[in-house]
């Protein structure tokens, strides 16, 4: 086994959801039995109509909420600190500069100052933001904030990366750039990714698999492999295979009642 393969396995975790249900107090049924197996190192996109329960699903996987019934199994069982979660908006701490925002997860885990700073600088370099370490969030553009948020997620070298419509608030060009960056980061690290999005094109570009949910209460209506090259770039978006994959996902969404 090469050392790189060993590193890859070290970074990966499988996610198994078994008949996951969540009904909120007040009777809103968000998830009506989700069963899903995500292999180690897989990049899965999750799509579904607005309000169907995608965020709820992600929160259950992250352990931020408890299912009404059903189970979430991670293999190997994972220290919570090796999770990362990226929200729709950057949600940075306005009183901390970029470096200290990115170092936050390590600080909370009790890592020493010098180490966490080095790791934060490294994560910022990975998202191409090494030059704004000392700036404050208010001085950054929307796209830069989102990249800081991504760096904050990467700083723990997560084995499981959960993203909830992370680039939805950005303009199309910025969004495509960040999609590219995320795909490249995933190719480098091969962590397991669950990526919630509304965009069929974004799902196609990023993921190896698209899981399409129905209207609330959510069920899985389609589970589609995306057979595109591993390494993806802007040109791919113009190819017929890309259009075909996007269309398949779109049709599944329509069937689910989007």
């Amino acid at each position: 086994m090469t050392s790189q393969a060993a590193a890859t396995i070290d970074r990966s975790v499988s996610v198994r959801l078994l008949d996951l249900r969540r009904t909120f107090d007040g009777g809103v049924e968000a998830l009506a039995g989700i069963t899903l197996d995500v292999a180690p190192g897989q990049f899965a996109a999750i799509l579904g109509p607005s309000g169907c329960g995608k965020s709820t699903l992600l929160r259950l996987v992250a352990g931020l909420d408890r299912p009404t019934c059903g189970t979430v199994e991670l293999h190997p069982p994972l220290d919570r600190r090796r999770f990362a979660y990226v929200f729709q908006d950057a949600h940075l701490l306005p009183w901390r500069n970029v470096l200290r925002n990115v170092a936050l997860p390590l600080e909370l885990a009790g890592i020493a100052q010098r180490q966490r700073q080095a790791a934060a600088v490294d994560a910022l370099e990975q998202v191409g933001l090494a030059e704004v370490l000392r700036r404050y969030p208010a001085q950054l553009s929307g796209g830069m904030k989102m990249r800081v948020s991504l760096a904050r997620a990467l700083v723990t070298r997560p084995k499981l990366l959960l993203l909830d419509e992370p680039f939805a608030a950005l303009d199309e060009i910025t969004r495509q750039k960040l999609d590219q960056q995320l795909r490249d980061l995933w190719l480098a690290h091969r962590m397991t990714v669950l990526f919630v999005t509304h965009s069929t094109a974004e799902a196609t570009f990023l993921a190896d698999r698209a899981v399409v949910l129905s209207r609330r209460p959510a069920r899985v209506v389609a589970d589609l492999p995306i057979d595109l090259p591993q390494r993806r770039d802007a040109l791919l978006r113009a190819s017929p295979q890309f259009a075909a994959a996007t269309k398949t996902i779109y049709q599944a969404l329509e069937r689910g009642g989007a």
Partner: peptide
Amino acid sequence: ALEDLFRLHGAGRWARLWKL
């Protein structure tokens, strides 16, 4: 969302109070 983030990274009561 930030409360979630702190909980996710295992922050205790005091860390949540002082740092968030």
